[in-house]
């Protein structure tokens, strides 16, 4: 069985650089102040794992977190 991958935003770290929303708009969106949030429960649909990892790698504030299990 495929492990479930999840993304989350550490809201105390996010400063609204908007990089995650640009590399993975399927997973993240910006709110009215420009800060990032995950869509829904943050579960990464099959096929979007690479984009989730890119979102982590491109965040200058290390605010995007990835868990799997």
């Amino acid at each position: 069985m495929r492990k479930v991958m999840r993304v989350a935003i550490a809201t105390d770290r996010c400063q609204g650089h908007n990089r995650c929303c640009l590399v993975a708009p399927e997973l993240f969106e910006a709110d009215d102040e420009g800060n990032a949030h995950v869509h829904g429960d943050g579960i990464v649909p099959a096929g979007l794992e690479a984009k989730a990892r890119l979102a982590v790698a491109n965040c200058p504030e290390q605010a995007v977190r990835l868990t799997s299990g």
């Binding site: 990089r19 491109n58 504030e61």
Partner: peptide, 23 residues
């Protein structure tokens, strides 16, 4: 360059307010 967590717009609480405009 796919992995590029650059800090052209700064870091921390003073992240450039106009970063979305500049981009």
């Amino acid at each position: 360059r796919a992995e590029n967590p650059h800090v052209a717009f700064g870091l921390g609480r003073h992240r450039c307010l106009g970063s979305n405009l500049a981009r």
